[in-house]
């Protein structure tokens, strides 16, 4: 039977209190033993040597289509600075696509744990569908701008790098629903913040249609955040035996 509780009393061995005699010896040897003096410069110096070489993770390619709507849309944008918008649209697209998969994984876990709470699963399924529709909507936005929506842009790449731990938590068969809600809460917090900035950016480029679509997406994301926040609180309270 799958575990429903995040923490139970057990044989955790990571603290010094588990092994009083060994830890006493350990502390004594560390207190009296030598430390490395280090004479090869500082970590900051070493890192600066690489940072100052000025490389970045990659670039945004030029638009693939310069016809019709795309051409006029691009002209309306401010020259080369349009790549900032394209980069950020592609970042959101990648995030929403990965988000769809994250929710699929979470739904599978909720089913496997047999929470008995149909509302939670139904809520997760709705979010999963909305993440997918955001992905499709952003795909359309990039196409309208004449940009290639299949490109992984630098912001998409770095954003995925920053959130690499989330799918790992969700897919681990040992993690509980509460632990998974906590992980996906990180994604939802980032997502809400990113949609707000994307609206500002689209506004700055006078993309009124996009602004409208993005506001609707943000309102859905705010519901996602509230739902996950609520699920997490309920789950922790349940584990702690506190009535909510």
């Amino acid at each position: 039977m799958a575990k429903a509780e995040s923490a139970g009393m057990g044989m955790n061995k990571t603290g010094i209190g588990t092994a009083p005699r060994l830890s006493k010896e350990m502390i004594e040897s560390s207190r009296t033993g030598p430390v490395s003096q280090g004479n090869s410069g500082t970590p900051a110096d070493l890192r600066a040597q690489y940072i100052r070489q000025g490389n970045n993770v990659g670039s945004v390619p030029p638009p693939t289509s310069m016809k019709g709507v795309a051409k006029s849309a691009l002209q309306a944008l401010k020259g080369e600075k349009a790549i900032v918008l394209i980069d950020k649209l592609a970042e959101r697209l990648a995030f929403e696509r990965t988000g769809t998969r994250l929710y699929e994984t979470l739904i599978q876990k909720a089913h496997a744990i047999e929470t008995g709470n149909g509302k939670v699963v139904a809520g997760l399924e709705r979010i999963c569908q909305e993440e997918l529709s955001h992905f499709h909507m952003l795909w359309g936005c990039l196409e309208k701008l004449g940009a290639d929506p299949t490109v992984e842009t630098p912001s998409a790449d770095v954003s995925a790098l920053a959130s690499q731990g989330i799918p790992k938590v969700l897919a681990d068969p040992r993690t509980t629903l509460a632990q998974c809600f906590e992980a996906i809460l990180i994604a939802e917090l980032v997502d809400n913040d990113a949609w707000e900035r994307l609206i500002d950016l689209a506004n700055g480029f006078n993309q009124t249609d996009m602004v409208q679509q993005f506001r609707q997406a943000l309102s859905q994301e705010a519901e996602h955040l509230a739902f996950i926040h609520g699920c997490l609180t309920k789950e922790i309270n349940r584990e702690a035996g506190i009535s909510s």
Binding site: R97, G99, T100, R101, E104, T150, E152, A160, P167, A171
Partner: peptide, 11 residues
């Protein structure tokens, strides 16, 4: 890769 990381292998 697609089904867990949600990304396009052709990248």
């Amino acid at each position: 890769y697609e089904r867990t990381e949600g990304k396009d292998p052709n990248n």
